[in-house]
Design a protein around this nucleic acid. Structure first.
Lengths: 117, 117
DNA sequence: GACACTGTGTACTGTTTAGTATATACTCTA
DNA sequence: TAGAGTATATACTAAACAGTACACAGTGTC
């Protein structure tokens, strides 16, 4: 059960087909960690790294940061901060949306974005 | 800057006016921590406690758990889990709502709760 | 003046987090 | 066959987290 590691490795190897600079070592260097550490991460030998490292990795591999953070079992700290500023309001909203189908949530997002609120 | 500790102490002392069982020691015992630890928490001598302890404290003091967690700098793990299941969808929704006034968010909550989605 | 209660100061602890550093083994290729 | 590049195994670590344990000093009261 190492969704995070597998996803990172697969994505990196895919990029590598077209671009040799996506070796484990080169990637590790770009995101600022030891190659041995990235190796352990990809094999699920250690828990996913810190939020900062996950975000750098997402940028390097052109993955959506929120998605990769989710695979790492985390939620972006900027979203958390937004929730913490109005905890009861957002708690209710999120719990209300929990079991709604994607399209309902999406419709809502659009409505909010386009409508004059 | 110890919003959490101050709020807990104030709330507890308020309850205590009507009910002597809200002494620091008794409260600590009910929520399952050492009195010295609760003392330090209330005085801001240590960081806010773990999510589980914050929730037990909120229950004991009849405070909204999401609110108290927010003061502790945390977001309930059940909300985080909901977000992690559809990270991109919820990330967009929350960022979209970040700067909206309370009443707009509330209107949305109601709409979702009452409407047939 | 002993008892029961209050809150607090000090010292210590196990666990988790988030990594580093170094050495090793394999593969290609010039 | 030397050298460069690849990934991985092993050992270690500093800092943060989430507390416990115990002794102490003050206040009331019976």
């Amino acid at each position: 059960m190492t969704a995070f590691g597998d996803f990172v490795r697969t994505t990196r190897e895919q990029l590598r087909q077209a671009n040799a600079s996506y070796s484990l070592r080169k990637t590790a260097e770009r995101i600022g960690v030891q190659p041995s550490y990235l190796s352990k991460i990809e094999r699920g030998d250690v828990a996913p790294p810190s939020e900062e490292t996950v975000v750098r990795l997402a940028e390097d591999l052109q993955i959506d940061a929120d998605l990769l953070l989710a695979l790492a079992g985390k939620v972006s700290s900027d979203l958390q901060e937004t929730i913490r500023k109005r905890p009861q309001l957002f708690a209710e909203l999120i719990r209300e949306m929990r079991d709604m189908p994607d399209r309902a949530v999406l419709r809502l997002v659009r409505e909010v974005r386009d409508g004059e609120w």
